[in-house]
């Protein structure tokens, strides 16, 4: 069932408040909710939350035969399905427009930005490669699930360690258990993060970063920028019909750059802190 659109008083209040640069959760227009990352006992399991939006990402690897077109490259697949657990407005089976947008964007940000080196996933050319499977579970929707899912996905890939393999001769592959040899991290070129801005039909209303559920529903258009701390833009996607000036877009890109730098530091610190707790004594 499509949710009923927000009531008239809600719509009017949100617009008046935003014109005065006030947001319902007390943030300033270009302020993001603080992301929290919780790592599970398994490597590659991350729960990421932005306010009340929660996404769990899990990475697993298995060995498969590569496709004949790309015998030297590993395979990465992303599974993201929004179940009714996130919110009663999502139905199982039939993907909503929002779900399609999120899935396509995840594909662009995580797979096509070449964040993970696919050639390093090759074990035996044409015979055996790693198949990395990233599964995203959307647990709660309080707005901006896309940014939360991208962050969870990237952090899970960086947190993941695959078992070390050894190739003997031409066709013998030995997989070492994690107890024998330390598992290997994936070769990650860069970590792109996604930032979503929402625009409103009224030109006086400023654009806002990281929209909440109500803001997202009342917005006239959104723009998602995926970029890394090295200022490399991977994806820029603008949805909805709110024309913007070039200067305005550039200003928002600058905001996103600062946010990406900050987020990179947070993520690096959290990953390092988690890794500290996982030291195993080697005898």
């Amino acid at each position: 069932m499509r949710p009923p659109s927000p009531s008239i008083p809600e719509k009017e209040f949100l617009n008046t408040a935003l014109k005065q640069n006030l947001r319902l959760d007390g943030r300033s227009p270009l302020e993001m909710r603080k992301p929290t990352l919780v790592f599970g006992p398994e490597l590659g399991w991350v729960e990421c939350s932005l306010g009340k939006t929660r996404v769990v990402a899990n990475v697993e690897a298995k060995m498969v035969k590569p496709t004949p077109e790309r015998p030297f490259e590993g395979i990465i697949t992303i599974h993201s399905e929004i179940s009714p657990m996130a919110s009663s407005e999502y139905e199982p089976g039939r993907p909503s427009d929002e779900e399609v947008t999120i899935t396509r964007m995840l594909d662009k940000v995580i797979k096509r930005s070449d964040a993970v080196d696919k050639e390093s996933l090759c074990i035996l050319a044409g015979q055996r490669v790693w198949h990395i499977r990233l599964t995203l579970h959307f647990l709660a929707d309080a707005g901006n699930m896309l940014d939360c899912a991208c962050l969870a996905g990237i952090v899970a890939l960086r947190h993941f360690r695959r078992p070390e393999v050894e190739v003997i001769g031409d066709d013998e592959v030995i997989v070492h258990s994690p107890l024998e040899r330390a598992p290997m991290p994936l070769a990650i070129h860069h970590s792109p993060f996604c930032f979503t801005f929402a625009f409103f039909a009224d030109p006086e209303t400023p654009p806002i970063l990281d929209p909440s559920q109500l803001e997202q529903r009342l917005s006239a258009g959104t723009m998602s920028i995926a970029l890394n701390a090295q200022k490399e833009i991977c994806v820029l996607q603008k949805l909805g019909g709110v024309p913007q000036q070039t200067e305005e877009i550039l200003r928002l890109v600058k905001v996103a750059v600062d946010q990406a730098k900050e987020l990179t530091m947070t993520v690096d610190a959290r990953l390092a802190a988690d890794w500290e707790t996982r030291h195993v004594e080697v005898r």
Binding site: F13, L22, G26
Partner: peptide, 9 residues
């Protein structure tokens, strides 16, 4: 509006 936001928060 800021009073309404205060109540909501």
């Amino acid at each position: 509006p800021k009073q309404i936001i205060a109540v909501a928060r």
